[in-house]
Simulated assay, not measured.
Amino acid sequence: MADTEDGSKPKKIVFVTVGTTCFDALVRAVDTQAVKEELFRRGYTHLLIQMGRGSYVPWKSGGGDESIAVDHFTFSSSIADHLRSASLVISHAGSGSIFETLRLGKPLIVVVNEDLMDNHQSELAEELAERKHLYCARPQTIDQTIANMNLESLIPYTAGDATPVAKIINRFLGFPDD
């Protein structure tokens, strides 16, 4: 890994987000030594965890030559800046977080919250993983997913054109075609 002009390693941030939910299982999973060591081994220097409404508080550390620096916060008025500065995003399976990250072209691991009833979010995450736009994991498999991921194999996501669908809906509702 190339050093910066001042001799330090370039900053490679892993941003973890649970959105507005409580997803302590994800926060707890990324706070394990196994996950931190695997991220550090892969060249990541910082782990920033947005912990939402959860009660589990991750361990903060300063990092250094032997470990990844860890910080956390509960909420932010916008996570867009955190997403933009991230080298890797680990997210809950909320569609807003997923598509915002994919639109920015960031590598993404989506972690499904198995405690949710009627979990349609897992269907979205698994479908996008099958299409190779992201990786899908469970809290208990996040360390193996990180160890086995090949970010070069991910296919960039391109949003579809919703114009034809909008025209059909407008026609159905009696609005004139433009």
Rank of each mutant, 00 (worst) to 15 (best):
S85C: 10
K167T: 05
E66I: 08
E123V: 13
C136S: 12
Q144D: 13
L124F: 05
P10H: 15
C22Q: 09
E100I: 01
H82T: 00
K132P: 02
P156S: 01
A159M: 06
E66D: 14
L154Q: 04
A25I: 02
A25F: 00
C22W: 01
D81W: 00
L108N: 00
Q144F: 06
A34D: 15
D71P: 14
D24M: 05
G105I: 01
H92Y: 03
F99E: 00
K132W: 02
E66V: 11
F15Q: 07
E152S: 13
K11S: 15
H46Y: 07
G94Y: 07
R131A: 09
S97A: 12
T74E: 15
G19D: 08
Q50N: 08
M149N: 08
E130H: 14
M1G: 12
K12Q: 13
K106I: 04
S77A: 13
I169N: 02
G64M: 08
A147S: 11
L134T: 00
G43D: 04
D6R: 12
R171V: 05
D31F: 11
V89G: 04
R42P: 02
R138C: 00
V110T: 12
L88N: 06
G160W: 04
T141A: 10
H133W: 01
D24L: 08
G43I: 07
A34T: 13
F175H: 14
S77H: 14
D6N: 15
V89F: 08
G94F: 15
V110D: 03
L88I: 06
I98R: 01
S85G: 03
R84L: 15
L102K: 01
P10E: 15
E66H: 11
E123L: 12
F40I: 05
A34W: 06
P156E: 04
I155E: 13
L116Y: 04
S77G: 15
L124Q: 03
A69M: 10
G43E: 07
E123D: 13
S95M: 10
I109D: 05
E130M: 09
R42M: 07
N113F: 03
H82P: 02
G63D: 02
H82E: 10
L47T: 09
S85D: 09
R28M: 13
R28G: 04
L116R: 01
V110L: 07
E38G: 05
I49K: 03
V18Q: 10
L48M: 11
L47A: 10
T145V: 14
A147I: 04
S87E: 14
F15T: 07
S122Y: 02
N119I: 01
G7R: 11
T17M: 08
N113I: 00
G62W: 02
R171E: 08
E5P: 12
A34E: 15
D71G: 15
R41E: 10
S122M: 10
M117S: 06
K106C: 00
I13C: 06
